[in-house]
Design a protein around this nucleic acid. Structure first.
Length: 242
DNA sequence: TATGCCTCCGGCTACGACTA
DNA sequence: TAGTCGTAGCCGGAGGCATA
């Protein structure tokens, strides 16, 4: 059984990316290029952020990652209805993104946006890992925060449902398990933790790249903040800027 | 080897309970 | 009262297995 231990690298921080702002200002034109790039290179694109950065002269991989982080924050504000006029340039793309996420939430008592039953979207291993991280951070039951801060691609309902199956899986004895499952990945212990090694490596790279001022922020905060916004794999690309 | 049936897994939905 | 969580059950899909 593969296991991982999030607390081994998650710092005792306030768990925010607030301090880790991009060091450069973004013009309207740059934002437009940024949105176009996001449309061209979707989430499945390898080294997505490297490619996005190439499209925007003067912007680094970290810059575009931070910009994406802020875009997602805007979307969250829009979704929550907290901010009538989002704090910075909010594009139609952000609004579309918000609509897209809204489609994945369901109204109560059986009235879904789609009348037909949705085809299940399988959880990826990465999403499950983040789910486990969120579980460690917020504990069982706080699906809203886990969804918002760790598995942003899933709604709280989906997270809760996933958790239900996860706990059922844990309760079933190993002998009863006929087939391997993503739920076999747990948070129990440290050994065989490829993820830990990967993240230690990434944190070193991030720290190397950060300016002296930024280094007052834990690189783990940067890494986790990036994680929260689907920057999978692209942090590796930071190495070229070090 | 191909095919079809069976079983298991896991995402989705509905609904009751709880709380602010 | 609305929002959120917990959970039972439904359902589709994939893998396992038996049989021709």
């Amino acid at each position: 059984m593969e296991t991982l231990c999030p607390t081994s690298f998650v710092p005792n921080s306030n768990w925010t990316m607030q301090q880790s702002k991009s060091t450069t200002e973004w013009t309207k034109e740059e934002n437009k290029r940024f949105e176009s790039a996001l449309a061209i290179y979707d989430e499945t694109t390898p080294n997505r952020w490297s490619k996005v950065a190439e499209i925007i002269p003067g912007k680094s991989v970290l810059d575009v990652m931070m910009q994406y982080k802020e875009l997602v924050a805007d979307v969250s504000d829009i979704e929550a209805g907290l901010v009538p006029n989002p704090r910075r340039f909010v594009s139609s793309f952000a609004l579309e993104f918000a609509d897209h996420r809204k489609i994945h939430t369901f109204s109560k008592r059986g009235k879904s946006y789609d009348q037909e039953r949705k085809k299940g979207v399988p959880w990826t291993e990465e999403e499950h890992r983040r789910f486990l991280m969120g579980l460690e951070k917020y504990g069982k039951g706080d699906w809203r925060n886990i969804s918002r801060n760790f598995v942003i691609s899933k709604t709280p309902t989906q997270v809760a449902s996933h958790a239900q199956k996860y706990y059922l899986r844990q309760l079933s004895g190993e002998k009863e398990r006929k087939r391997p499952s993503i739920h076999d990945i747990t948070t129990v212990n440290l050994t065989n933790n490829e993820l830990l090694n990967n993240n230690n490596k990434l944190m070193c790279e991030v720290k190397s790249y950060m300016s002296p001022l930024q280094r007052s922020t834990s690189p783990a905060d940067v890494l986790i903040g990036c994680w929260n916004n689907s920057f999978d794999g692209d942090l590796m690309a930071l190495g070229q800027f070090v």
